[in-house]
Amino acid sequence: MLADTALMVQDETIKPHGRGSAFETVMEPDFLAVRNTSLKIDNHLAAHQLPADDHQNCSIALTEALNNIVEHGFANLDSGEIRIALTVGVTTIRAVLTDDGRAMPGFQLPEGAAPDPIDLPEGGFGWFMIKSLSRSQTYERCGEMNVLTLEFSRGPAN
């Protein structure tokens, strides 16, 4: 009984309820899970009736970030998970992505240069898109975990 209460209290501190502003989920590191999570994030953003640009920026950048974690962080790894915490504030939308995949090379974010369209590139756009669409990006390697925080500006309602 005591343990139950303690758990409930702990839950309350992690995820304040009744405001509809926090979204948390855990996913397997594969592309189908990215699709499902991306759709869930989309629904959550839609509930906030954000300006269309803000909604699109956040939705596109988070999908790219998750794809990159699956493709690079978890390449040839068959276990682990990715956790997503998204808060939609009055002026800022903040997403914290935590995973136990491999570290980013050099423990830092990729440069994210844009590929030249003339070369007909079939990839390499991911971090360019994330950096273009978000206001700030921070990455930390914490023990065996990667913690990526992306922030987006939230403009006035339509």
């Binding site: 790219e64 794809n67 990839g123």
Partner: peptide
């Protein structure tokens, strides 16, 4: 509704 960079590449 949605194309990501992999879809764009495809």
């Amino acid at each position: 509704d949605f194309v990501d960079s992999s879809g764009l590449g495809a």
